[in-house]
Design a protein around this nucleic acid. Structure first.
Length: 684
RNA sequence: CGCGAGGUAGAGCAGUGGUAGCUCGUCGGGCUCAUAACCCGAAGGUCGCAGGUUCGAGUCCUGCCCUCGCUACCA
């Protein structure tokens, strides 16, 4: 096993607070891993920090009439304090806006620059003269040069599916100001990922086929087999880290380039404060580097950042990148902008001193292999049925019995019976099992193994029945409770990485020394709690969570949903009036649906065959989420019949069905329903 | 359409070639030290579908279907 661990957790982007998805995917597993490694006596640097650059922050500031600095200060503070009170025990949490990071990132750039790694390319890019900035591809719309669709985006045309670059668009328009963007020459530096395909091939595809998670490995494989492209590492923007070479005024490092370097600068800052040398943490082969991230970050941490590290020729590569999938909330995708989330800072207020409950639930149901769903129902069940009923209750039974029979002193054990030995043997095997699970990033399994130990304790008490034997064999009861107390102590030690607050509370109840007993003591079946040791006061380790609390949380989410529906807002403003002539140009008809079929591999598209008098037409309409195939057939609807045909998913749509949206956000037909209106009738 | 990940008991998941398992839930029983908690037992699965390889397939191969994600779409 390596002796030193550099553990990084994805840098949170400071444009919003932390929610349960972040915790389940990144911060809780990283924290468990780091805590465990520290308990094994390893040198650990658990590193994180706020990611504070990039165009999204610049735009958010502009929108809110604040400076970018104000935005990042606000969220850095919120994120920092909520991590701290949640017990994510970073060794260091820095910020990419700090001087040390600017220096480190610039130095990193310089190293690659001096080695001639980058390719320099002049290109003509669209520049918005009103907003006075270069436009990212997705901020430009225009006419597609291939299919003439007038609303193609700068990176891709929705109509024909072609990949475009913004400069190819005919009649481009800035979505920021509406201005006509002008071409302006600009120079950028590119990281030629294509030259490192062999490196990635050997390192990951051949070297880590079996120890990396399938979802991570699969993503990398997909990227490599599609062919890697050079990627610009600089941008024309005023918010970020200046490009430290001549001839680069007004240019900053692209945020994805500077952010991962934040791991290094944060380590440096930490080492300086501790009087340590940071270098071994990033250069020594005895160091195991592990990146904890969500699946959206796989390409950066498995391809781009490693290529940067490799090209610099002075850093070690990550040993593993255990990316998690995503967590949904009550069946819907978590969304910061739609406020569909459980926010960490709100949880901490509403469930004070219950950090471990959320830690446990998010660990036991972590999205390790696929997307998972968080529900308040499960949250309550996991707490009441597992933490309270199994773990907390076992501890309480042992505490109460020991106080009742022996005034809180640990009794002297007698001769061990078969049932005692078997229980202690199972106990001795657990540290290795839990450790193995954590070392292999299977935190869900680790949490269940820990709960299994509490179950073992309950079973042991049920089998030995000390409350009966106390009347007939009081000596035997001493052995039983001594054994039960050993299990309790082991729980306190083994729970530390997973449930640090409860572990601390339990240690206090057991009156354990503050320093941790090593896991090896459990494996060696050493006495963990000596006879005559005096226990502390019994307290409940976990509290029941009531239905009313869950109802309140669910109501909060329902309120969010209501806010998000169009009805909660004002009616959309009317468009400018049109002349009668223009209205007359529209040919509106009654159409009868005679066939309806969902378009494969789409969520919303329905292929409809409609009758217009004698004529039959195909119309593709985005209504599949609101209507079943069967209920559509026979229905009469209003159709805009002379709309220019458009091809969707390879099906030519010859018209558009008129629809309205009700307050629940469901689509309803505008039109004549099934009266005696003949199909083909004109609507006037 | 393309790529990736999944599809195993009512729910959530484990199981990568050798008699289908865990947790929750359900039902029945036991216990009463314990936060109406704990312990035992039972019911419940054609392991997405169809072929193939093999003495043997949840596990390997091929094709297909479905779900999710990325991307796109929503005329």
């Amino acid at each position: 096993m390596p002796k030193r661990y550099t553990v990084t957790a994805a840098l949170p982007y400071t444009n919003g607070p932390i929610h349960i998805g972040h915790l389940a995917g990144v911060y809780i597993p990283a924290d468990i891993y780091s805590r465990y490694m520290r308990l094994q006596g390893k040198e650990v640097a658990f590193i994180c920090g706020s990611d504070e650059h990039g165009v999204a922050i610049a735009l958010k500031a502009k929108k809110e009439g604040k400076t970018p600095q104000q935005i990042i200060d606000q969220y850095d503070q919120l994120i920092r304090t909520s991590f701290e009170s949640f017990g994510i025990a970073f060794d260091h949490y820095s910020r990419t806006s700090r001087e040390i990071h600017h220096e480190t990132a610039q130095e990193f750039f310089k190293i690659l620059y001096d080695k001639g790694v980058f390719e320099e390319k002049d290109s003509e890019q669209l520049y918005d003269p009103e907003a006075q900035q270069f436009l990212a591809d997705r901020y430009v719309t225009g006419t597609c040069p291939i299919c003439q669709n007038p609303e193609a985006y700068g990176d891709q045309c929705e109509s024909c599916g072609s990949s475009l670059s913004a400069t190819e668009l005919i009649h481009p328009k800035s979505t920021l100001s509406g201005a006509n963007p002008k071409l302006k020459k600009t120079k950028h530096w590119y990281l030629p990922l294509n030259r490192y395909e062999n490196f990635i091939q050997k390192w990951i595809l051949e070297g880590h086929q079996h120890d990396w998670k399938p979802n991570v490995y699969g993503q990398v494989k997909s990227w490599v087999s599609n062919g890697l492209q050079p990627r610009a590492v600089t941008r024309d923007l005023d918010w970020g880290i200046a490009v430290p070479v001549p001839d680069a005024e007004g240019k900053v490092l692209y945020v994805w380039f500077d952010a991962p370097i934040g791991y290094i600068s944060s380590t440096k800052e930490w080492a300086a404060q501790k009087g340590k040398d940071w270098k071994p943490y990033w250069t020594d082969k005895e160091t195991q580097l592990v990146h904890f991230i969500g699946k959206d970050n796989i390409v950066f941490h498995c391809i781009i950042f490693p290529v940067m590290l490799h090209a610099s020729d002075r850093y070690i590569l990550p040993e593993n990148v255990p990316a998690n999938e995503f967590l949904n909330l009550e069946g819907r995708k978590i969304s910061t902008s739609k406020n569909w989330a459980v926010w960490l800072h709100e949880y901490l207020q509403e469930f004070p001193d219950q950090q471990d409950v959320l830690r446990y639930v998010l660990t036991a149901n972590a999205p390790e292999t696929k997307d998972n769903d968080f529900t308040w129902e499960e949250f309550q069940a996991r707490n009441n049925n597992e933490l309270v009923a199994i773990f907390g209750n076992f501890i309480n039974r042992v505490m109460v019995l020991t106080h009742k029979y022996y005034e809180g002193y640990v009794p002297e054990p007698g001769k061990l019976e078969q049932e005692d030995k078997e229980t202690l043997d199972s106990l001795a095997k657990l540290p290795a099992k839990i450790g193995h699970a954590i070392e292999h990033y299977r935190f869900r399994e680790a949490s269940q193994l820990l709960m299994g130990l509490a179950r073992l304790g309950n079973k042991y008490l049920a089998d030995t029945e000390p409350w009966k034997l106390i009347k007939t064999q009081p000596e035997r009861v001493k052995t039983i409770l001594h054994t039960a107390l050993q299990i309790s102590t082991a729980l306190a030690i083994l729970a530390e990485p997973l449930l640090p607050f409860s572990a601390a509370k339990l240690k206090k109840m057991l009156n354990l020394d503050t320093e941790n007993k090593p896991w090896t003591a459990i494996e060696a079946q050493k006495t963990l709690l000596n006879p005559q040791h005096l226990l502390g006061k019994p307290e409940l380790l976990f509290k029941q969570i009531e239905d009313s609390q869950m109802d309140a949380q669910r109501e909060k989410l329902t309120a969010t949903l209501t806010e998000n529906t169009p009805e909660g807002k004002d009616v959309a403003p009317l468009k400018p009036s049109v002349s009668f002539k223009k209205f007359e140009a529209l040919d509106l008809r009654v159409a009868e649906i005679i066939q309806a079929k969902k378009v494969r591999k789409t969520k919303k598209l329905m292929e409809l065959t409609v009758r217009l008098g004698a004529e039959e037409r195909t119309v593709v309409s985005g209504i599949a989420t609101d209507f079943e195939e069967a209920e559509l057939v026979g229905k009469k609807v209003s159709l805009l019949a002379n709309l220019h045909p458009r091809t969707l998913k390879g099906i030519e749509s010859q018209g558009m069905i008129l629809l309205g949206e009700n307050k629940e956000g469901q689509l309803v037909f505008v039109g004549p329903e099934d009266k005696n209106t003949a199909s083909g009738t004109s609507i006037k």
